[in-house]
Write a protein that binds this DNA or RNA. Structure first.
Lengths: 197, 197
DNA sequence: TGGTATATTCAACGTATGTTGAATAGTTCT
DNA sequence: AGAACTATTCAACATACGTTGAATATACCA
């Protein structure tokens, strides 16, 4: 029952934190349908709130998106720092760090991917960051030939896996434990990091 | 100069094939901005044509999308058939078939991914097909433990690579030759197909 | 030559969307 | 108690979109 609220400030006690409700609904819907595919009105509806309350709190739709994507830590930086420790066992460290960072924030990852891919803005912040931070630091730590292509492939392995786990949510990947994934996938990633000689 | 056309059927000779122009513009824009991010008016503008001509030829916007995605062959079927030949050297066969099928149709692949991911329809035809055909036939041909998860991982390797090559277009992957990719990536994929014992 | 079909534009419609401004009710500060 | 602030809804807006129907000019067929 969407409790019919009256105009004006509600008495303290109903304080059911509409702001948080809006953020929650937004996160879910952005993750499920992307930025463009989600309307403010449908977010408002799910949050049980008038549309204009969103504007009041977050300015406009992009403001809401930004608020939605606030993360406790910046996963890309953690990953970049893990790369710096050299190529030995890098695949496992990469996987554990990546999954450790994103598993608690699947919806945000999904939003980012859907938003980034859904609106072909190749200047999108996530793409820039991924390119500059992830690939650049990978290139720096790899040995041998074709470092750029191999760095891109390693990124594609991480992103592809995350795509299936967080966005498409294939059950067998979405429900696997971190240890399982490391066990099954780390050797294959490591083979791109340090090709057998 | 967008030649100002007059109302009524143009004299034969200007026969610059507006239908094909519409399809071209649509393919490019769907590939670049996804289905939702592309408006019929902007397609019409790029094709140098009135909006309603699109409806005339393709019925409605989804009709245009469908027309845009017509492929000479069905790549998923080719891949599924290649899987059937058993796990030995499967990675290389998969990569060559996949790239052979999609390299000539990057824009279509990009459209599909952007459209599929941009509008979180988890019933989207491409997803269903990928799940049922690709993963199912992979599961059938793998040996050992964790077949489902490994099949999902192999798919994620293919999709992730294609994402970077066709959609994001990282230069080092987008410009690499098929042989390069096979050389750099096939061993890593094969290690998921047949884990070292 | 006449009639029908086709290619094309024009004009308008209905709808959904993001946004804005005002109204109202409660809280907090002085 | 009064003023200032905050939370909330309501009503309206301009805009962009997909779609439709009519108008017009040419091509094709008998």
């Amino acid at each position: 029952m969407t409790t019919k609220r009256t105009r004006g400030r509600p008495p303290a006690g109903d304080a059911a934190d509409r702001r948080a409700a809006i953020l929650d609904a937004a996160r879910t819907q952005f993750a499920a349908q992307g930025f463009g595919g989600t309307s403010m009105r449908s977010i408002a509806r799910e949050a049980g709130v008038d549309v204009s309350l969103i504007s009041h709190y977050f300015g406009d739709k992009s403001g809401l998106l930004v608020a939605t994507m606030q993360l406790p830590v910046n996963p890309l930086e953690k990953i970049a720092s893990v790369v710096k420790d050299g190529p030995d066992g890098l695949a496992e460290r990469l996987l554990r760090t990546f999954l450790g960072s994103w598993d608690p924030h699947r919806d945000i990852f999904s939003s980012m991917v859907r938003t980034t891919l859904g609106s072909g803005d190749s200047q999108a912040p996530m793409l820039q960051l991924a390119r500059n931070i992830l690939i650049t630091s990978l290139v720096a730590v790899l040995d041998g030939d074709d470092r750029e292509a191999r760095a891109s492939l390693i990124s594609s392995q991480l992103i592809g896996m995350a795509l299936m786990r967080y966005v498409v949510r294939l059950p067998d990947l979405a429900d696997a434990s971190v240890d399982d994934i490391v066990r099954l996938y780390a050797p294959a990633m490591q083979l791109v990091v340090t090709p057998s000689t």
